[in-house]
Design a protein around this nucleic acid. Structure first.
Length: 541
DNA sequence: GGATTGAGTCT
DNA sequence: GGAGACTCAATCC
């Protein structure tokens, strides 16, 4: 009998399941439980007792895997091939709906999912314990599932009128710029096409080739900047690129994603994507909303509370990765700098250039800032020379100087690479693990890349650990104090909240307390917090 | 129609 | 020739 003819009423089924699903004492095992939570939420059911997510478990065991589908992990850990859905519904033009498939077959198919997931959970459970990942799993990642689900459900409101006006202005400017480019270039072409653009620049206008791509000539921003003085069209092309990116990716795309029922945009926070332990955000990605340029920054003004009497609070960690570096490396000077509350980039400049802190120029500070970030990424002298516009020997001297002033950092970085060589993986402050199999590769490029990974992952990953725990503690406090305000976004070192009228003072206190007090490091952890009528204002910009 | 490429956005 | 992500438009297959 086809499934659609079985005659079970959906509401009747849900009402029977609700009690079990909402009972926190009945433990739930599943694959991608955040999805189940969200779906059930749509039917007025709150999934409680979330205990073991096989997708999250697989991620902790090896965060570098390209995906953690049930099909793939069943094959990896059970050597079992899941029945493809197309075995039931066919494929191509003859494909039918699952509702039309015989109920017996749908039943077997569904039970296979449940059975495999449960069997996987027992195997993964043991592996997590063997690898000392169980505390991270039970204490952080599993409770985070619900927090992320609630953030996704909360969503974020947008000022659509503001974006519409902005779009119209951009359109006008884009048309003007386009015409000008055609005029100067002596003909029409598609400026968005690298192929056509590179034909115009390098064949028609005979501009010099700065950089090549795998298949042709590069026309990226760094190339165009270098060519800017050679031809008047270049600046216009750069402007065209910027405007067109902002318009297509943000200004026009975001309003399309507003949910008609909730009037909000609901991103997905992916918990099993990055190799380092960070979250990622997609459909839409709300972790790369512009802020660096004036025009891009305007877009943040469109992120507002749904109700005009409410506000947004933004809180972000100050220099969290460098503080983690200070903690791990135990470097006396770096620790001292943070304990005494120095401007870390100015402090570094003073030491590296051997001047008094008062004598540090803007340029010196900017250079020191570049080096500070470069250290976290395991930057080479070549990379630094490119970034600072100096020659390689100078960059080498710069780095040498840096390590002389921060000897503990040098030692720590070397130890990380050594550790990766010996055990084949590196770990974060909460013992999150990333394997680095290519660390002993004969291929120098791969080996060097691995060494940078060994340096960056513990730092980036520990920052991810830290904010995840802070999120759990904040969510707990909001619940315990019965507040209606909601966590909405996480952007790696920043959290954004929609704050109900009258709750701002209490929320500020909770957020600051939980973020700054999350772990006890060898250096203080500082959080900047701000409130406003839109995201930009809340960030104090 | 899906995959790849090149570009650009963020921390 | 510095780490980690996602999306868009054009183009390829």
């Amino acid at each position: 009998m086809p499934a659609q003819d079985i005659g079970l009423d959906r509401d009747w089924v849900f009402s029977r399941l609700k009690e079990m699903l909402e009972n926190p004492n009945i433990k739930k095992v599943g694959q991608n439980i955040k999805y189940e939570y969200t779906i059930l939420n749509n039917y007025g059911i709150e999934l409680n007792g979330i205990y073991f997510d096989t997708m999250v478990a697989s991620y902790l065991l090896n965060p570098s895997k390209p995906n953690h589908n049930l099909d793939d992990i069943a094959m990896e850990y059970l050597d079992y091939k899941m029945t493809p859905l197309t075995d039931l519904i066919g494929k191509g033009r003859k494909q039918i709906s699952l509702e039309e498939v015989d109920i017996e077959r749908v039943c077997r198919y569904s039970c296979e999912d449940a059975d495999v997931t449960f069997r996987l959970s027992e195997i993964l459970d043991k592996k997590l314990k063997d690898k000392n990942l169980y505390d991270l799993f039970i204490g952080v990642e599993m409770p985070l599932v619900t927090v992320l689900a609630k953030m996704e459900i909360a969503g974020v409101a947008l000022d659509t009128k503001f974006l519409k006006d902005m779009s119209a202005k951009m359109e006008e400017r884009l048309e003007a710029v386009t015409k000008e480019i055609y005029g100067i270039a002596g003909g029409e072409f598609n400026i968005n096409s690298h192929q056509q653009l590179s034909h115009v620049l390098f064949e028609k206008l005979k501009l010099p080739i700065i950089k090549r791509t795998k298949t042709g000539i590069s026309t990226d921003e760094s190339v165009l900047r270098k060519l800017a003085s050679t031809h008047p069209a270049i600046w216009l092309i750069l402007e065209y690129r910027t405007l067109s990116k902002l318009k297509s990716t943000y200004i026009d795309a975001l309003p399309e994603l507003i949910n008609k029922k909730t009037h909000k945009v609901h991103t997905s926070f992916n918990q099993t994507v990055t190799a380092t332990g960070r979250l990622s955000s997609s459909e839409p990605n709300l972790q790369n909303i512009p802020i660096k340029t004036d025009i891009g920054r305007e877009i943040r003004k469109a992120f507002i509370p749904l109700k005009s009497e409410d506000t947004l609070i933004s809180a972000d960690y100050s220099q969290i990765e460098l503080r983690i570096l200070a903690h791990f490396s135990n470097d006396k000077n770096l620790i001292n700098a943070f304990r005494k509350g120095h401007d870390i980039h100015a402090y570094t400049a003073a030491r590296v250039f051997d001047v008094k802190e008062k004598e540090v120029t803007k340029k010196m500070r900017a250079q020191a800032k570049t080096v500070n970030f470069g250290i976290i990424y395991g930057m080479s002298p070549y990379g630094l020379s490119r970034d600072l516009g100096i020659d390689v020997p100078q960059a080498e001297e710069f780095i040498e100087n840096y390590f002389e002033r921060y000897p503990g950092v040098k030692l720590y970085l070397e130890e990380q690479i050594e550790e990766a060589r010996e055990q084949g993986y590196v770990t974060t402050i909460l013992n999150r693990r990333r394997y680095i199999p290519e660390i002993n590769s004969a291929n120098m490029k791969m080996k060097q890349f691995s060494e940078r990974t060994a340096i960056n992952t513990p730092i980036q990953g520990s920052a991810a650990d830290l904010i995840k725990v802070a999120m759990l503690n904040i969510a707990k406090a909001i619940g315990e104090e019965g507040l209606k305000s909601k966590m909405m976004l996480q952007v790696h070192d920043e959290l954004l909240f929609e704050v109900k009228k009258g709750e701002a003072k209490q929320m500020r206190e909770i957020i600051k307390r939980e973020m700054e007090g999350v772990f006890r490091l060898k250096v203080p952890i500082l959080v900047r917090i701000g409130e406003g009528k839109n995201w930009l204002e809340a960030e104090g910009r």
